[in-house]
Simulated scan of single mutants.
Amino acid sequence: MTAVRTHTHAQAVDAAIDLFSRQGYEQTTVEEIADAAQVSRATFFRRFRSKEDVVFADHELLLEEVVVMLAATRPEARDSVEAGTRETVWDPAVDPYLEVCRAARLVFDHHVGQRETSLARHRLLQEVPALRDRELVTTHRYERAFTAYLRDTLPPDRSTTTMSIAFAASVVAVHNAVLRRWLRNPHLDLRPDLEEAFAELRRAAWAPGAEGGTPPASTGTSDQAGEGSTRRVVVAVLDADADADDVARAVRDVLA
């Protein structure tokens, strides 16, 4: 994560996770977290509203960073002098699907980079049901951010709400599946697996007959949408413990 994760923020998050792991979530007080982080109680509440918030504080920063990262490749809106109207200009070199995968990779790299905190947070989530519920809410926020970006960034002839939702959900599902594997086996380097799974999702999205259409020239793919290709709703049903390969394979099989 960038410098937006300040020293005070990092101290508070790391101290809270450590105390929760050693003492238990319910048994740990805000005062203890503030003391361990060497900040005042007032400072703690200016940054975090509750103990639950501090557990997911990094995600708040990550979401902000993801939104900023994606915004940099959104199409530009500019005034048309001749027509006297405002038009949207798409960059043909931008692959919106690739940009979403890059944003998800940012989240994955943060977890891996904060190894001990990530592992401790994962154990904590297994022990506290309320925190698992909050994690689901956070996951949906990433999906909404990805979906909104795709709807705004894919050119009109390629953009549909259905495809945007499906691709965003698939990317988040693949990311979470690979992340869970890493959390169970933190000695493994699973980034190549994540990259391959994302690449497979992009190939499926740009495949002939898929709603995505033809990829930008910069993506390096040669898939072309055939004449008379039809648009369709894509639904893939998987078990809750499906891994990245299962998700990618299911989407590919349906699109095929």
Rank of each mutant, 00 (worst) to 15 (best):
D79I: 07
L70I: 04
V30G: 08
K51F: 01
A42F: 08
L62R: 13
E60Y: 10
A34W: 11
E76F: 02
P75H: 00
A83Y: 00
R74Y: 02
M69Y: 14
A77P: 03
E64L: 07
K51V: 00
G84H: 08
R78P: 03
R78F: 11
T85N: 08
F45E: 06
R78L: 10
R78K: 12
R46P: 04
R46Q: 12
F45K: 03
A83L: 08
A36G: 06
E82C: 00
T43I: 12
L62M: 15
L61C: 06
D58A: 13
S40C: 08
L70S: 01
V66C: 06
T28C: 03
E76W: 00
D58H: 11
E60S: 10
F48M: 09
P75E: 02
R47M: 11
V67R: 13
F56W: 03
S80G: 05
E32S: 07
E76D: 12
A36P: 03
V30H: 02
F56D: 02
D79H: 12
R49D: 14
R74C: 02
E65C: 07
E82K: 04
S50H: 02
L63I: 10
A71R: 13
D35N: 14
E31P: 00
H59R: 12
E52K: 08
M69S: 15
V30E: 03
F45Q: 05
V68F: 09
E64D: 11
L62E: 15
R78G: 06
A42G: 14
T85L: 08
A72T: 06
S80K: 06
V81D: 13
T28I: 04
P75I: 01
R74G: 04
V66H: 01
V81E: 14
R41D: 14
S50I: 02
A57G: 15
E32W: 00
R74P: 01
R46D: 11
E65M: 13
F48H: 09
